[in-house]
Amino acid sequence: MLQYPFRRTGSSWLEMERLRREMNRLFSGMASEAEAGVTTGYPAMNVWANEDGAIVTAELPGVAPEEMDISVVEDTLTVSGSREPVELEEGEVYHRRERGCGKFTRSFRLPFQIAADQVEAVFKKGVLQISLPRSEEDKPKKISVKSS
């Protein structure tokens, strides 16, 4: 009689998949959007990078731009702000309340010194995008080799 150790359906496969992802994430050190989900604070941030700097994006729906505070010190970016709760008037009742509100602050350390005077932030459709150029002094020096 033949017995299959794994059935086609069942939670053991899901568990294996989760474990595989977790291992990949730990060992590769590479980012993949498809495997995102480990959030360490609010807001969740995605970081895009190249040699000249980085672009940090964060989803902040309903946060007014004037309530946002972005600061840069050396290699650390700090984003803070708040989202006001909806004030209900008398006689109004909640059916569902899933959206969070209140104050938040998040610091993010980048692997380079940021040129603080060139930082730009755009807030569009509830998505914040901050471009953080790398400071000139921090960029790797190119050394040309002369032939004698």
Binding site: A31, E33, A36, V47, W48, A49, N50, I55, T57, Q129
Partner: peptide, 16 residues
Amino acid sequence: PERPEGYSLAYAEYRV
């Protein structure tokens, strides 16, 4: 999804 040109995703916490 907006992918900044010339940049590659280095770290991701959320999906679009």
